[in-house]
C-alpha cells in the first residue's frame, strides 16, 4: 500500500479513519479509541452559546479534556461505578459530510457532521452537530491531536448529559 503524506492523503483515507473511530466508540472499545489520540491531544465540547473557537481557559464548556483527563474519562466509563453508563448504553455514531478544510505540512484540519444516537432504558436521545479535527501522522498512522464537538442543539435539552463520547 502506498504511503501518503499529509499534503496528498486522499479524503477517502481520512473518512476511513473517522469511520473506524466511530466503530470503536459504538463497540465500547474505548481504550483502543484512546490510542487514536496523540500524547498532547485535547478533546472538547463547548457550551452551545459560546463561539466555535472559544477557549476552555476562559469560557464554560461541557467537556475540555487534555490527554490525562481524557484517559481518566475512558477509565471511568469502563467502570461499573460510572452509573450513567452502567449498563453501557447502545450508541450509533453516524459520520458524514467529511471535508478536508486545510492542509499544513504536518497537519490536516478536517470537519465532519455527526448524528449520534444513544439508547438506554427505553429512551433514545440524539446528539447532532459537527466535529472539528486536527489530524497528524504518527509512525505512518493518522492520529487525532484535537477533536472539538460543536453541538447544533440549544444546550443539552432533551439529552440531559454527555455521558458518552461524541
Amino acid at each position: 500500500m502506498r504511503m501518503f503524506t499529509m499534503q496528498d492523503i486522499p479524503r477517502a483515507d481520512v473518512e476511513e479513519f473517522l469511520f473506524a473511530e466511530a466503530d470503536l466508540l459504538d463497540e465500547w472499545r474505548l481504550p483502543e479509541w484512546l490510542e487514536l489520540f496523540t500524547d498532547d491531544a485535547t478533546y472538547s465540547v463547548p457550551a452551545t452559546d459560546v463561539p466555535a473557537n472559544a477557549s476552555p481557559d476562559n469560557s464554560l464548556f461541557y467537556v475540555a479534556d487534555d490527554r490525562f483527563r481524557l484517559s481518566e474519562r475512558v477509565k471511568r466509563l469502563m467502570k461499573r461505578t460510572a452509573h450513567a453508563e452502567f449498563p453501557h448504553s447502545r450508541t450509533r455514531h453516524v459520520v458524514s459530510n467529511v471535508r478536508i478544510r486545510s492542509r499544513a505540512e504536518a497537519e490536516l484540519e478536517v470537519s465532519s457532521a455527526f448524528i449520534t444516537f444513544r439508547t438506554k432504558d427505553g429512551v433514545t436521545d440524539t446528539y447532532f452537530g459537527s466535529n472539528r479535527y486536527r489530524l497528524v501522522q504518527v509512525d505512518g498512522n493518522l492520529r487525532i491531536r484535537d477533536k472539538r464537538c460543536l453541538l447544533d442543539s440549544e444546550g443539552l435539552r432533551m439529552q440531559g448529559r454527555v455521558s458518552i463520547i461524541l
Binding site: 457550551a47 452559546d49 472559544a54 469560557s59 464554560l60 464548556f61 443539552l156 432533551m158
Partner: peptide, 8 residues
C-alpha cells in the same frame, strides 16, 4: 463566565 450549561 461566558457559557451556559443548559440541560434537562
Amino acid at each position: 463566565v461566558g457559557g451556559t450549561q443548559e440541560y434537562s
